[in-house]
């Protein structure tokens, strides 16, 4: 991993980037209710990754929003009783390659959960009663449960409440 500090004006420089495929992300020291609106490398969308071919300097622009969507809700089991679960909001399409595009919450024993700072877009919501951490980043694992996901569209600044059935 290569990093470059961000100045208070938002500028950064990362040197010595060898040829290869990369993802970029921002690290911050205070919780911030933000999401990546766009990330472009030399004008081309780089949110789901990009390739560095040689030593030519490259220019990146990252636009952040602070009006992400919010989602809360309840997890129910197949007998419609509240259930604890790991709730995962999984992005659709190529953003599945980007772990930071997922949102994860733990539903409490009465099944309640909250997710915030969600980038606008289309998602599927899953609630697993028992799941290994980050198993959902494995495309093969997700394919097994794809049909159990609850489709959700999130808009800028929107708030929604949902009920989702737990996957045992």
């Amino acid at each position: 991993v290569l990093s470059g500090s961000v100045t208070n004006n938002g500028f950064f420089t990362i040197s010595g980037v060898l040829p290869g495929n990369y993802l970029a992300w921002i690290e911050y020291h205070e919780p911030a209710n933000i999401y990546v609106k766009s990330m472009r490398l030399d004008g081309v969308d780089a949110r789901d990754g990009f390739r560095i071919e040689g030593p030519s300097p490259r220019q990146m622009e990252i636009v952040l929003g602070d009006a992400g969507g919010a989602l809360d809700g309840a997890v129910l089991n197949d007998k419609l009783a509240p259930s604890a679960a790991t709730v995962v909001l999984v992005p659709n399409g190529s953003l599945r390659r980007r772990s930071t595009a997922y949102k994860v919450a733990v539903a409490d024993p009465v099944g309640r959960f909250q997710l915030q700072a969600i980038a606008p877009g289309d998602y599927k919501l899953f609630a697993w009663v028992d799941v290994e951490a980050n198993a959902w980043l494995d495309a093969e694992f997700l394919r097994t449960y794809e049909e159990r996901g609850f489709p959700i569209s999130v808009g800028e600044g929107t708030k929604a409440s949902v009920r989702v059935t737990a996957i045992p």
């Binding site: 991993v1 290569l2 004006n9 500028f11 420089t13 990362i14 990252i62």
Partner: peptide, 26 residues
């Protein structure tokens, strides 16, 4: 290697002081 430079842009300038770094990984 290449140099990747750029800028983080946000409507809320207060957010900029919370960022530590931009990172690249494979």
């Amino acid at each position: 290697g290449a140099e990747v430079s750029g800028r983080v842009i946000t409507d809320n300038p207060d957010l900029l002081t919370r960022f530590d770094s931009v990172s690249l990984g494979g």
